[in-house]
């Protein structure tokens, strides 16, 4: 009986011990992914910002500029690209809608971001764009990969349509969550006018005819929870200028927007709670279960060996196995 029990325990010990690395190194990279149907919104605010009044072409300080950012997974588009790319893909349609203090639209920039659901590596397919312009991302955008590392990443900037390094600057604690702080500076760069302008009748083409150009610089800051790769907080020191051309009269340049853009407080709380919950799920697969299974496997192995040793001890009545009678052959 002890012999049988020790064999069952041995099978279970091998089962759990093997499950530990299989779960961590085989199952996790294949199961952990961004859902194709994800929908999320974010509200950011720039208080006491500088905003250009296109009626008077004068920059003025306004109490608040609000940016509403929505990301919506297109499942049908993801399925189509899945087949050609041969891997799990997420297609995010995004909209950055900027609203002035009077509630009127300042700018509205759509984009389509296609990426690997597991690694967050960009995937290039038809439809990848920013504000209608085809782009080719060479880095991440919005989210870091699962198990983010303490290193620089390539990050896509939608305004300049370029990919540049975003630097790891240290580990911090943000509202009880361990986070990695990343920072990217985009120097003054000439960028296209948004296709949708805040004043009716003004188009990017009509502005281009005046010779006026749009320039932009930003310092982008992200506090990223490393297990999930999800930013729990973000800030941008964002500046835009219009330069040259007849639109500005005798001025060289005028500020189109300047402000310290920060996440709204209720969205910070919501994001921190969501990331904490998702973090537990990821840790379950990369840490809690693998270590738990390994410990259980070793305990079962020890128990199995103990029972086996006892069953073999000489003089132990339990070790006396009942011999089945041999069949009698003629």
């Amino acid at each position: 009986m002890r012999r049988k029990a020790s064999l069952i325990l041995l099978a279970l010990a091998v089962f759990f011990t093997a499950l530990s690395p299989l779960l961590r190194w085989y199952a996790f990279p294949r199961l952990a992914k961004i859902p194709a149907n994800q929908y999320q919104d974010m509200v950011l605010e720039a208080k006491n910002a500088t905003l250009l009044d296109y009626g008077t072409m004068q920059a003025k300080t306004v109490p608040k500029v609000t940016i509403v950012q929505t990301l919506k997974g297109d499942v049908d588009a993801a399925k189509k690209i899945d087949k050609t790319a041969g891997r799990d893909v997420v297609v995010w349609d995004g909209l950055s809608y900027v609203q002035g203090p009077d509630g009127k639209m300042v700018s509205s920039i759509p984009e389509r971001y296609i990426f690997d659901a597991h690694t967050q590596d960009p995937v290039h397919a038809t439809g990848e764009m920013v504000d209608g312009d085809p782009v080719k991302r060479d880095g991440i955008e919005f989210k870091w990969p699962f198990l983010t590392q303490k290193r620089d990443y390539e990050y896509f900037d939608a305004q300049t349509r370029t990919t540049n390094p975003i630097h790891y600057k240290g580990t911090e604690n943000f509202r009880g969550v361990k986070v990695y702080y990343f920072e990217q500076t985009i120097p003054w760069t000439k960028v296209p006018f948004p296709k949708t302008m805040p004043v009716k009748g003004i188009t990017p083409e009509s502005v281009a005819k005046t010779g006026t150009t749009r320039w932009y610089t930003t310092v982008r800051k992200f506090w990223v929870e490393p297990v999930t790769g999800a930013p729990v907080y973000g800030e941008e020191l964002h500046k835009e200028e219009l330069r040259g051309g007849t639109l500005l009269g005798d001025r060289d340049k005028v500020t189109a927007f300047a402000g310290d853009v920060k996440m709204r407080e209720d969205y910070i709380k919501h994001t921190v709670a969501l990331v904490k919950s998702n973090r537990t799920l990821v840790l379950l697969m990369v840490s809690y279960l693998p270590w738990g299974f390994l410990t259980l496997g070793l305990l079962l192995l020890a128990l199995s060996l103990y029972l086996e040793a006892r069953s073999r001890r000489p003089g132990d009545p339990a070790s006396t196995e009942v011999q089945e009678p041999e069949p009698v052959n003629a």
Binding site: K33, N37, D41, V43, T70, L95, S108
Partner: peptide
């Protein structure tokens, strides 16, 4: 895991009151 369906919710052009 199943891919699910595209959310019917729109890309927002108004400021939501809460998350």
């Amino acid at each position: 895991s199943p891919m699910g369906k595209t959310s019917p919710k729109p890309l927002l052009t108004t400021v939501p009151a809460h998350p």
